[in-house]
Nucleic acid binder design. Structure first.
Lengths: 331, 331
DNA sequence: CCGGTTGCTGCAACCGGTTGCGGCGGGACG
DNA sequence: CGTCCCGCCGCAACCGGTTGCAGCAACCGG
């Protein structure tokens, strides 16, 4: 491994001059500068990040902590953040809680390794987040935490749009498949939907669910948790929604004929085979969330301690329609 | 931030003794050891990783480089690797190519940051991989590279099983939806399937596809690329397969009645609503691949420079069945 | 009672960039 | 021709753990 000193010796200058030729080129005479830079490139110099970090106290690295790496929801967030980081010459450490709500604990273990932490944690107590923020720059995603830089998709407003869409189609009894208990954002979404539906004289029935995957949707379709006069369902995860769509159709329940299905993210909502997107869903700007949070952490100015909301967009697809005129007792 | 020296001073010992009390406890007297350890815990000592790395030359970090973070296929691999790393006290750097085949380039930029690189790159030239391996310990996933530690799911054998399953059901004309050109593993899979099908007197038609997602499947279902007498389709991605299933059914093509559909991974193949898994698919041990590769990189013994194949498992689902007795001209 | 061994601790060097500060040489100006 | 200034460069300290080596005390056997 070629060190700075090797290049310096080859160029006939001191370590300090070589260092400056690379990091503060304006402080070095043109001839020297070019000779050092040329030799550095030729010899394949790679500056030791640990040595630099030891002196400067900055690692050029941001830690990203997510609840799960297998949940496709977090992929785009990580991708957006990672892209932003590499654009500014940084790197990304990654850690997933995988079980239990250990995100804050994990973040603490990364303290010395990173200049900042990008945290996605739907359920950790706010107090612990604020405490962590006193020790390292923090950006929180998908969680509006007062006094902390937070970047959230405005899905509460979005489910309002979804609810309005369904109400306008004529639905009054609507089911909502929420996430595991304790997600602060899910609660806001449910409240937003409740408001709309109640105002219109309808009713929203809420059930929880464990994992946001296809299987959950299939199971719900098989063991229908809602009353028979529910004519539309909103799922907080598009994979659940997709599972519902497939499962319902397999059981002979037409979607959207007999049952409308909509989702709060757009991961599985892509595409159209010529007749519009498959699922009616909310386009959630996941990559943009990651990007913005990462930018806040690498920026020279400390991130503003406030909640930044990024809008969602209603994607009308083929999975919602007017309710069936009569609501016979079906499965 | 509490440094080792602070703890040493508080304990009334030198830095060296404090350091040893924590990392080589057997070398210090019991009383001293406990005092240092207690104070370290009480004061919240956090050893500076950069300082340690500078002297020891080891960072305790492994870099994981994948083509994409949004592709759900890589999530489980990363999760498996990350779990293994944290189990051994390590950390994970992550980088995604996101566009173009820049994986090797990215890995090189991480040279000084990590003790090893876990690389998932279906298309980078083998030569570059071997060259990179001379500079840093490398483990390759899903790519059998001779002379390098490689961990691959034995999907060629697996598609053999899939093909056999379809042949046994009576299918003779089978379609295969492969990935973007240039994936070395996909070629092996196609060859394996071809062998089986030809031997049985059948024929395998291969088409490529760009992105392994639902949308691609929907599009293919809408613009059917295979001959009308094809009665079964295998897709290299379960999301494509799922898209095919949905799209075909929407067009009135019964699955599996008129068309059987199978997939080479199990990501979207979960679940059953009581009547077996939705998709016939290959269970691919993605987390295990990540885990094994990570273990090879953190292990005290250097990883053996050989290909480790991990078996797949055929999951019989509801998307495959016997071909329709007649093969009328359909859509 | 003495030489040797063992157990524990401290000193100081070391890892490799970064940067404050001082020095040196040349040009400008009086 | 002398002085001052400025541009450029090198010396050395520094970041904070880690570890080779030496020193010191206690304990052993002879």
């Amino acid at each position: 491994m070629i060190r700075l000193e090797d290049v310096a010796r080859a160029a006939g200058v001191s370590k300090s001059t070589a260092s400056r030729a690379l990091s503060r080129p304006d402080l070095v005479a043109a001839g020297t500068r070019e000779k050092v830079q040329r030799l550095a490139a030729e010899m394949g110099l790679s500056l030791n990040p640990a040595a630099r970090a030891l002196f400067t106290g900055r690692t050029g690295t941001v830690a990203m902590v997510v609840p799960s790496l297998t949940n496709p929801y977090f992929g785009p967030i990580l991708a957006g953040a990672q892209r932003e980081l590499s654009a500014s010459g940084g790197h990304a450490l990654i850690s997933s809680a995988s079980d239990g709500d250990r995100e804050v604990e994990l973040a603490a273990s990364l303290l010395g390794h990173a200049d900042g932490v990008l945290l996605v944690t739907p359920r950790a107590p706010e107090e612990r987040l604020r405490e962590l923020a006193t020790r390292i720059p923090l950006a929180v995603i998908d969680r509006p935490v007062p006094e902390l830089p937070a970047y959230v998709a405005d899905t509460p407003r979005g489910v309002g749009l979804l609810a309005a869409h369904l109400l306008e189609l004529g639905h009054r009894r609507i089911g909502y498949v929420g996430g595991p208990d304790g997600s602060s954002l899910d609660r806001l979404r449910i409240d937003a939907a409740q408001d709309r539906v109640r105002t219109a004289g309808g009713r929203l029935d809420v059930v929880g669910s464990e994992s946001p995957d296809l299987d959950t949707g299939l199971r719900l379709a098989a063991h229908w948790p809602f009353d028979d006069d529910v004519t539309a369902v909103v799922a907080y995860s598009s994979y659940i929604a997709l599972g519902l769509l497939i499962g319902l159709r397999e059981r002979g329940v037409e979607v959207p004929g007999r049952m409308s299905v909509a989702a709060v993210d757009h991961l599985a909502a892509v595409g159209g085979n010529g007749s519009g997107p498959l699922l009616t869903a909310l386009r959630v700007p996941l990559e943009e969330l990651g990007r913005a949070a990462a930018a806040a952490l690498v920026g020279s100015t400390p991130a503003p301690a406030e909640v930044t909301r990024i809008g969602t967009e209603l994607l009308l697809g083929r999975s919602t329609g007017a309710p069936a005129p009569r609501s016979p007792r079906g499965t």
